[in-house]
Design a protein around this nucleic acid. Structure first.
Lengths: 258, 258
DNA sequence: TCTTGCAGCTCGTCTAGACGTCCTCTACTC
DNA sequence: GAGTAGAGGACGTCTAGACGAGCTGCAAGA
């Protein structure tokens, strides 16, 4: 592997030059996904710098999300997570009618084993943004359904649904197992025929808790999708807040030009 | 401001405890957007640690995107960028008919002064993913239109459009100024009436180049939106690749439940 | 009054070393 | 042959100091 040398005339500091060398080694293909980078000791020797300087170079690549450090083993080029494409019609009735919740239908198609864990169901006062989206009065409470989705035992998404208690009470929505077709099937059984969803998409760095639940390495942002479901009378019946590891997802939306 | 002390019995390393103290000071409101954090020297004295340890604590908050360091001035709580909500109908014909490109119409509504700079127009072979989206043959070339959008002189988005040369050649699309209504108005004039768009959304950490062009501090991810425009005969006529500072945007999509 | 230079603060970078924990591999023991 | 202890290599954390460069305010001089 060709690493080059530090140019003391170059205005850029050594640690940045080292980071650049490593970055281009990855881009060139000298280092491929899963490969180990030169150890800190090797970099220290090769460039004649202090160990902290070599570490700083590696830190650059870590916050860019390009490499992952493993204590006691080394630093490795990030293995790109298999990308999941989410079509905008993934909540369409046709999928639900087959008796499958959206996540199961999806996993089925991708050939992975879907699991759901960390299911927590509570009744609580809604956070302000949820209350606004559900158009609730100040004292109205909601059903909160939080869970984590896994594909082949690797966590890929955490989601929290909020439904007005008036809608959810007495249905399987408040059970750990919502039954065939999931929440949306139960909603339609109670007469709330779904008309459309509004999804709000943004991205940010994860909180420490999200990083733990999604088992994210440093430098990986999350996609946040807040979906509000409306029934045919225009009433919002569910807000679902999902957090996904960003590089593992592509969200696809079809928009009429009208 | 209450900072607390390091608990040497706590399993967590000192730098992480210091980071937690600072983080909760921000969350509590002791430190607000724009406020200066205690200097490295102050942290060093208060906690009786080496300067590098105090720096490491601050580094944590930087990669989380919560604070910004300014050389010679101090470290400040990140000023949250004003959020721009992008509705899914922002490219609808009704806006275009008013003679405004989408970005201008938007800026107008938000009350900011829109600018476009770094305009580069070239003819080139398309990158593989663009060629696939535009369904081009191996030797077909494209018009490439790259530009940067600014609101009140602050860069907010860089975008690159790709159009088949067969479509773009001889139109204002290849001029710096595309004229009233922008690219889409020109496309419809040449007979390519737009039918729908497909937007693919994902997020990641920015490249060094993107960080420079968007003037992003450390720890801020970008939203990547790739939009493909189809005309009424189902032919893809444009691929537009946009990169935006993630925390400054919320993308909104309306999805029928069908 | 205005300008300018500098002191003293800030963060940025680097050095050279210490000790800790985690992981892997090897060689030894049973 | 299987199991295990240990060595050594890897990253994680910390120290104590150095010098550099950007910023700001104040004091001295024009």
């Amino acid at each position: 592997m060709q690493l080059g040398e530090i140019d003391r005339q170059d205005g850029r500091p050594p640690y940045r030059q080292i980071a650049d060398h490593l970055r281009s080694a990855i881009d060139r293909g000298d280092l491929r996904a899963g490969d180990r980078l030169p150890s800190e000791a090797e970099l220290t020797r090769h460039y004649s710098v202090a160990r902290m300087t070599a570490r700083q170079a590696i830190q650059e690549l870590r916050t860019e999300g390009r490499v992952v450090a493993e204590h006691g083993r080394g630093v490795f080029v990030r293995m790109p997570a298999p990308v999941r494409r989410l079509a905008s019609d993934r909540f369409a009735r046709k999928h639900r009618d087959a008796g499958q919740a959206a996540f199961l239908a999806e996993a089925d198609k991708a050939g992975v084993r879907p699991t759901v864990d960390q299911i927590e169901i509570t009744r609580a006062a809604p956070p302000p943004d949820v209350r606004e989206r559900l158009r609730l009065s100040d004292d109205e409470r909601v059903a909160v359904r939080s869970r984590r989705y896994l594909a082949d035992d690797r966590p890929i998404e955490v989601a929290t649904s909020f439904l007005p208690l008036a809608v959810a009470e007495g249905t399987a929505i408040l059970e750990a197992n919502t039954g065939p077709g999931g929440i949306y099937a139960r909603l339609e059984e109670t007469g709330h025929i779904l008309d459309h969803f509004i999804e709000e998409v943004t991205a940010r760095m994860p909180t420490a808790d999200e990083r733990r639940r999604l088992e994210l390495p440093d430098g990986v942002p999350v996609l946040v999708v807040v979906r509000t479901a409306y029934d045919t009378s225009g009433v919002p019946v569910e807000v679902c807040d999902t957090v996904k590891a960003a590089p593992a997802y592509v969200l696809e939306y079809d928009i009429p030009a009208r």
